[in-house]
Each structure stands twice: as C-alpha cells, then as structure tokens.
Design a protein around this nucleic acid. Sequence first.
DNA 1: GTGGTCTAGACCACT
DNA 2: GTGGTCTAGACCACA
Lengths: 128, 128, 128, 128
Amino acid sequence: MVKIDKDSHRPFYEQLVIGIKEDILQGILEPGDQIPSVREMAKILLMNPNTISKAYKVLESEQVLVTVKGKGTFVKQVESRPRDLRRIEELQQQFNELVIEAKHLQVTETEIKQWLKEAEAKLGGNEA
Amino acid sequence: MVKIDKDSHRPFYEQLVIGIKEDILQGILEPGDQIPSVREMAKILLMNPNTISKAYKVLESEQVLVTVKGKGTFVKQVESRPRDLRRIEELQQQFNELVIEAKHLQVTETEIKQWLKEAEAKLGGNEA
Amino acid sequence: MVKIDKDSHRPFYEQLVIGIKEDILQGILEPGDQIPSVREMAKILLMNPNTISKAYKVLESEQVLVTVKGKGTFVKQVESRPRDLRRIEELQQQFNELVIEAKHLQVTETEIKQWLKEAEAKLGGNEA
Amino acid sequence: MVKIDKDSHRPFYEQLVIGIKEDILQGILEPGDQIPSVREMAKILLMNPNTISKAYKVLESEQVLVTVKGKGTFVKQVESRPRDLRRIEELQQQFNELVIEAKHLQVTETEIKQWLKEAEAKLGGNEA
DNA sequence: GTGGTCTAGACCACT
DNA sequence: GTGGTCTAGACCACA
C-alpha cells in the first residue's frame, strides 16, 4: 500500500494521490471504506498532517474521496459521473509527450504496448 | 513548429524541449540542421533568452543538440547510442501513473491504444 | 421528511435544522405538533443524539421549537414576532454571494428567477 | 476592491475567492490582467501568503485564474466552457435552503426578487 | 476523536 | 522577482 519516495522530484502529496488511486483500482480500498485519518496517515508516512490533508482534498475535488468533518474520510461510492473531457484531453496531450520522449529513448511502439498490458494486469482489470 | 502554451502548467523550457524533439521526429528538423540562436529564438517566441538557453542546455545534455563554438547550435547526427535504461524505467513508471489517471477518468484500454496509434501516425514513424 | 446527505459538506445538525424548517413550511409539521424526542430522532436518522440535540437547541434559539419540561418538544405557535433585521441583512449578503457564484457558473438572471418560482411552489406558499 | 472581514465566520480564503470573482464581474479585473502577487496581496490584506495562495489555487481550479510559475497570476481569458451541471445543481440546492431560511425570517418572495435586482445592478450586467 | 483554517518560516523551481 | 511545497504548531468546529 501507498509508498512515498522522499527522493522523488514529485511532490509528496501527489505521490499520495496517485498511490490511493492505485489502491482503489487494485481493490485494496473499496467504496465506502474509511481511510486512515489525516493524523494517522501522517504518522504512518512520517509526514506532516497538512501534506496528507492536501492530498485528501485533491482527491475529494476529483470525486474520489468524501470527507465528513468530525467523522473521517471515505472512499466515494462511484456514481457513474460524466467523463471530464477537459481533463481527458489534457491527459492525452501528456500521453503524446510521453510517446515523443519514448521514441527519443529508442523505445518502440511494441514496447509501449507491452507497458500498457503490464499496467492493466497490475490494476487487475478493476474499474474506478 | 514549436508552440508555447502560456496557460499550461508545464514550464516554458520543458515545452520548448518537447517541441524541438517533436519537430525532429516529424522530420521538420533533420540531423545537421542549424537551429536559431538563443536570441533569435527568444524573439520568435517572445520569451526570455534565459529560458531558451535552459532548454538548449537540456537538449545538449540529452545528446539531441550540439553547440559548436562560434558557429551555432545544430541537430545532432543520430548515432545509435546505448539505451539509457534508467531513464526508460522512469518513463515506464510515469506511463503507469498515466494509466491510473486514465482509468479514474473512465478512459478504456482501447482508447489508450487509439491514442498510441494517433501519436505514432503524427510522428510519421521516423526515428530519433 | 428530513433527509440527511452524508456526502454533503454541510454539518449534519444544520441539515436537520433546515429540514425541520422545510417540513414546517410545507405543512408536514404544524404549530403545536410534538416532534420526536432526541433519542427517537437519533434512532430514526441513525445519528448521534448529541447531533440531534444541537439541532433542537438551534431551533429553540430561533423560536421555531419550544421544549416543555417533562412533556417534550413542540413546534411553536406562529406569533408575529418582529423581523430580525440583522439576520435578514446577513441573509441578503449571502444571497449576493450566491448570485456572484451563479454568474460565474453561467447561470442567468432568468434561471435564478425560475429557481425562486420552483422553491416557492415546493413550499406551498405557507408562512412560517 | 476585495475586503476581508476578520470577524466573519467565513474563512479568509473564501472571502478572497468571492471578492475576486465579484471584481471580475464588475469589470474591475479583466481577462489577461495580472493580479497582485501572493506576497503583495498578503501585505495588502495583512494575511499570510499561504492563505492567499490557497484562494488563488481555488480560483485556478475553477478556471477563473491561471498561474504561471515564475511569472505571476492572471485573470483567465474566458473561453465559453461547458456549464458545470454538478456545481449548478449544488448551487440551486443552496438557493432553496436560502429561501427556506428567508421565509422563516418573514422575508417575502417580492423582497427576494428585489434582492436579485439589486445584485444584478451591482454587478453591472457583465458576464463572467 | 475527526477534518479545516491560519500563521510563520524554510527551501526549491521557474522567468 | 514569481508561485509551489513542506514543516511545525496553534486554534476552531463537528460528531
């Protein structure tokens, strides 16, 4: 479950965001589950509570978590919500740049397809 | 050719780096071509010369450009250099995170394959 | 009757307060009616009695409910009490902010008027 | 221009968010304008830079501002973006509750219509 | 107990 | 100069 690489250039809170999303896709966290409180998680990951809180708020704004003051933070029940086209477009743009980078590193199309296969396998074919 | 999106969160210099790499893959820039000087490019893109300079330095460090003192900056001859496994691994990690994002945005595996096809088409199948 | 939205950011007790006020405006609750005791209501709504108690206290302070020792809590007789100008002013300020939000969400003046019409219809034109 | 009421129950950063939105609707701030830097604004309002930053980030997530690292924060060019139905629905719900509150304060439908007229006048009929 | 807000102050990346 | 991240620690509101 969620690991933070303190040497990564990626901000801690973003690593936590992606980590929790991964846990959900893998079924480690399920809709309705309560996730560790801000203070608990801070102790577990040896981080400042504010940083954890920031990650939780991002996830809430992305409709992944819900937080109830005084009770805690929970994995949201997935209602089939409309696809966020703006963000999908951004992601595709990011994907294109990744492909450019890959070709410059002499990674072939076949290899990228293989990456995709591996990623899907790791996420167990679950839906968000 | 290279376009800078002022509203993007990606640093200008990174946009420039990726833009030049794309131009090379598309054959707009070819090995041996001279590219505009830092000052010229700064005028063209209405950016600070320091920013252009930073981009060029990154591209030199990645063996994409060479600067010849007194002559200018050129697109490097493609030599089959050894694959940089560390950077490829990083890229795959980045790819995995992108897939996690995609699934949370309800983008299917099929759609990602389509993205890949489109990206390859756009880059004309050229090699770096 | 009163429904609590667990996913709302509004505190439970406030949701209860507004819910009871709505019931009164709709005539579901009438002056003189006894409302469930704190403990009963807590069972009905699956909430902590403290939370119910807090809501009742707010409603008492706002002259909506009265508690008679040993008998229970009742909907108060409508007396034409003086308008609380301070609170009305606050409400108007809140209304202004709501309009600002609305305009940024591209909601037109006409639509807001429609909202008002719908709200009035739902409340059946009864007076508190 | 933007005033913060330190005695209000509303968080400072939310007051700032609504204040900037109002300035835009009134035409005090126009698309493309640079707004005071986080540090400047902090000095002006006698607040901590982090709090200002939080407000700016909220406004960016709502597509009202764009921030460019190293350059500053700007009022976004309004592209006619799709209406965010989820947020509009939330706002209507909030509106309904406001009407309930109003009726309990003996505010009439006519008065609310008057409030709306005044609000529109104040915002000068500009579009977001 | 829970999360939310705010301050103070450090350090980093980008222009 | 700009904004972004992170920590430490205080205080408040809700359940």
